[in-house]
Design a protein around this nucleic acid. Structure first.
Length: 848
RNA sequence: GCCCUCGUGGUGAAAUUGGUAGACACAAAGGACUUAAAAUCCUUGCCGCUUGCGGAGUGCCAGUUCGAGUCUGGCCGAGGGCACCA
């Protein structure tokens, strides 16, 4: 008997699959399609464990659906524009293109070593002009539809990366990549009008019933729909302004109005630009930072103007107008009416500037003399101190009635507001898709004509410059359009644009003239199962949903609205963290242990290692495991087997060397089992009762795996594989060639194929299996044992177990068990009130 | 603060969706084989007493039910998301 030589055998099958083009998919309208897509990787150098998990999950599904007879599309590509290439280029004086292409080569070969069933004929790379030329056309199409516009606006400026960040890319006031504290800067920027679809993007979430609720909730919150009222406040004072518009969700608290606050960016500020005190205030505000987060941390400060705002419900109530640091220009109209009694921010502000705090809502368990004291009250209740509004139930009735009143008197208007802002796509970077726009001598926008597309990114550019390297390319910038000399846009597109439509490109990956062919989309789209990390729950998924709608706008040919029918978000791969006595991170390679509990430094065995919590693998914490080493040591099937074992795919999984070794041992012993069965099947065939057992076990296992596959419960499949091994191991020890042994074992190999394709294929080959690979049908008659174990309970507690014939009637069952010593004792020591019999499951005696 | 998710042995986890809690695996301990080690195999969730049996037991407290890990309400804890969003 031979060991399983994974190196040779895995290589053999990978080559064979490639030669026979078994993973190449062709449109075939007679066959039911299945589009399985994993989020494509950024080619950063080599694959990491997260990739291994992500792509194994997708591969299991693809292979399963193929066995089930679907025409499966399982493509792969490269999200290959982006800053790491530029950073690497700067650090090592490399060309971003060369660097990226070499990484792609490495990673592609690594993915192939995992035995993934990918259609490499459809490979795409977003940094190739073959890809981005279509993107430039799409950009211009959206521009013609009015979904792209340019405006001067404040942007989040990352001083390290020297680039603009989307609001979504600012995390805790810092750039999501560089970690630099974000500054504010005013620039001319290109925007996608995602807000046009706010309502649709929100509403259609309800149709995505194969998405995790968590992701849908996050998108809902991100879009942030709120129903409220727009109110115009009359202004009195020395300036030429007579109205300030506010948006409020609580118009019913208008009688608690004690100040009006506007953002420092509000148009009102132009009247105070020369005011030294205001300038100081503005400076004070900028000191506290400009991101929402840092504003949040700062104490509330205000600048009192000489203006008064009049309460629209009572002209006699006039309150001061402030500039305040906590009011955002981006949301609503950059102005809020302050009601300190029922809003904590307003309360804090009012306390600081000694403004009136008038209670207008009382909780239902309080009387009319209730007043707000130490904190604002924002709960439900009844309106008080509000004249004609008194007695209304807050919040629902009172808001509804107040809006009605304001609308009737022309003082306000019902309004729906969204938190979602338009998507800024301009990036001051070199390594991205050029924006196909130029400007003439009047700085008017000129579209690059179709016959001058694509706008190719110039090569051999010195990128060791501050700011955008494209700005320095005078030859490239100069372009003649219709005889006019123009200057190109030097900003490139956010890489989220690249990934917002790549799933469409896969459908027509080799179409030279079109980004995608509508008939291809009709067949392949939507993506039936999309698989990736939850970190893209908002940005990438929302942008892709927007792109689909943008393409569909005025384009009745495209039928699909939602790009991803099913979404699965897998958990991360974690590993323990280690530190030495000086608090430096240690990699697992640098330490050793003799008892599995205490670790020591290899280079200094006396030094004890501090074991930290298990965290997601990251280079900075040095707790990564290189998949390449693991593949070399144990082979692809063992890695696939391990990465799916133990934890359900949506949860984090712990990397453990012991677990990996256990998976490797499983592959090895399974191979030996196959060799044994092969030997046995050469013997004369044999028939006895065991055959039935084999049939039952096989069918039940296939059923179990089938169920688990349909629900992404891959860890249960691994457990079942272990059970399968134990069962057939025992059977093979009899050394009898049961008539149905070979057939059943072949079925088992077929259902294991999605998980461990190489060894399963090889085993089938060894057994001379030469039929087509098809998912075996489950024979339902084997799913229930003929003899059933019935649980005997007394007062709901398990007291015994009896094996009886299936579908036995209650009276017959009682005859069987009434003589049991145990039951007799219970029955003799109490009164039997009743018995509950659940067929084939249990009998429960109720005894007092 | 609000929203979401999750709490099961030393660990990762199963549990046919209300019916035998802890499948499967890791670790640890004990045992078998071996001159010995490695490898392999077997046993072990906890607390009692002698095999066997009894008791408690799925974060905590109630409730519904013949029966609750599963359903309902409240509390506690962990993780994630959002936020001076008016």
């Amino acid at each position: 008997m031979n060991r399983f030589n994974f190196k040779d055998i895995e290589n053999k099958w990978q080559k064979l699959w490639e030669q026979k083009k078994v993973h190449i998919s062709k449109k075939d309208t007679n066959k039911k399609k299945f589009y399985c897509l994993e989020m494509f990787p950024y080619p950063s150098g080599k694959i990491h464990m997260g990739h291994v998990r992500n792509y194994t999950i997708g591969d299991v599904l693809s292979r399963y659906k193929t066995l089930k007879g679907y025409n499966v599309l399982h493509p792969m590509g490269w999200d290959s524009f982006g800053m790491p290439a530029e950073n690497a280029a700067k650090q090592n004086n490399l060309n971003p293109k060369t660097w990226t292409e070499s990484n792609i080569k490495t990673m592609k070969s690594q993915l192939k070593q995992l035995g993934l069933s990918i259609d490499w004929d459809r490979e795409i790379s977003t940094c190739s002009a073959d890809y981005y030329k279509h993107q430039q056309k799409l950009f211009l199409e959206l521009y013609d539809k009015g979904l792209v516009y340019r405006k001067e606006s404040y942007v989040n400026w990352d001083p390290i990366d020297k680039t603009v960040l989307a609001n979504e890319q600012v995390i805790d006031g810092k750039g999501w990549r560089s970690g630099a504290v974000v500054e504010r800067k005013k620039l001319n920027q290109w925007f996608f009008k995602i807000s046009k679809f706010s309502d649709e993007l929100l509403r259609d979430l309800d149709s995505l019933n194969e998405w995790p609720e968590k992701v849908k909730t996050m998108q809902k919150n991100w879009i942030g729909k709120s129903l409220g009222c727009e109110i115009n406040f009359k202004i009195e004072g020395s300036k030429e302004i007579d109205l300030i518009r506010c948006f409020t969700t609580r118009p019913d608290t208008l009688f608690g109005f004690s100040f009006l606050a506007v953002s420092i960016d509000h148009p009102l500020s132009k009247y105070y630009e020369d005011n030294a005190e205001f300038k100081n205030f503005k400076k004070e505000c900028s000191k506290t930072g400009t991101t929402e987060e840092s504003i949040a941390q700062a104490t509330k400060i205000g600048f009192k103007t000489d203006l008064l705002a009049i309460n629209p419900l009572d002209n006699l109530i006039k309150v001061p107008v402030y500039f305040a640091n906590f009011v955002l220009m981006d949301y609503g109209f950059g102005a809020v009416f302050g009601c300190p009694a029922h809003d904590q921010r307003d309360f804090d502000f009012a306390k600081k500037y000694k403004l009136k705090i008038k209670t207008v809502v009382k909780p239902d368990n309080e009387d009319d003399n209730f007043t707000v004291k130490d904190e604002a009250y924002s709960g439900p209740g009844t309106l008080i101190n509000s004249k004609f509004l008194d007695g209304l139930k807050a919040p629902d009735q009172s808001i509804r009635e107040t809006i009605k009143f304001l609308e009737n008197k022309n003082l306000g208007e019902k309004k729906i507001n969204y938190r979602l802002k338009d998507w800024g796509v301009s990036r001051q970077r070199y390594w991205g898709c050029p924006i196909p726009i130029a400007y003439d001598e009047n700085n008017d926008i000129i579209k690059i004509p179709e016959n001058q597309l694509p706008v190719k990114l110039p090569e051999n550019v010195n990128i060791n410059v501050n700011g955008n390297p494209l700005d320095t390319q005078d030859d490239w910038k100069k372009v003649t359009i219709n005889g006019k000399i123009c200057s190109r846009e030097t900003d490139t597109l956010d890489t989220f644009v690249d990934s917002s439509w790549y799933f469409l490109r896969f459908c027509s990956a080799n179409n030279k003239s079109l980004a995608f062919d509508k008939s291809d989309l009709d067949y392949w789209m939507p993506v039936d199962q999309y698989i990736g990390g939850v970190e893209h729950a908002i940005l990438h998924l929302l942008y892709s949903r927007f792109f689909m709608r943008a393409i569909n706008l005025n384009n009745p040919g495209v039928k699909i609205v939602e790009p991803f029918k099913g979404l699965f978000t897998q958990g991360m791969v974690c590993h323990e963290t280690y530190k030495d006595s000086n608090d430096n991170w240690l990699s697992p390679d640098e330490i050793f242990s003799e008892n599995g509990r205490e670790y020591f430094l290899k280079k200094d065995p006396k030094q004890k290692v501090r074991i930290g919590p298990s965290e997601s693998m990251s280079k900075s914490k040095r707790n990564t495991i290189d998949p390449q080493n693991i593949i070399n040591l144990y082979g692809a099937d063992a890695v696939r087997f391990f990465i799916l074992a133990d934890s359900p795919p949506e949860r984090d999984v712990q990397w453990s060397d012991e677990g990996m070794i256990s998976a490797y041992k499983f592959i090895q012993k399974f191979w030996l089992l196959n060799e044994q069965i092969l030997e046995i099947t050469k013997k004369k065939s044999h028939s006895d009762d065991k055959e039935k057992e084999i049939d039952i076990f096989t069918n039940q296992s296939i059923y179990k795996i089938n169920q688990a596959l349909d629900k992404f419960r891959y860890n249960v499949i691994i457990a079942t594989c272990h059970e399968i091994y134990s069962f057939f191991k025992k059977i093979s020890e009899n050394k009898k060639n049961y008539k149905n042994l070979k057939k059943n074992f072949e079925k088992i190999l077929l259902v294991m194929m999605p998980i461990i394709p190489h060894i399963s294929s090889e085993c089938l080959d060894k057994l001379n299996y030469n039929e087509n690979f098809r998912w075996p049908e489950v024979d339902l008659k084997y799913l229930q044992n003929e003899n059933n174990n019935i649980v005997i309970q007394v007062n709901g507690k398990k007291r015994g177990l009896v094996s009886v014939q299936k579908n036995i009637e209650e009276n017959d069952l009682i005859k069987v068990i009434k003589d049991k010593e145990l039951i007799k004792n219970y029955l003799n020591n109490g009164n039997l009130l009743k018995t509950i019999y659940i067929k084939n499951k249990l009998i429960n005696y109720i005894i007092k």
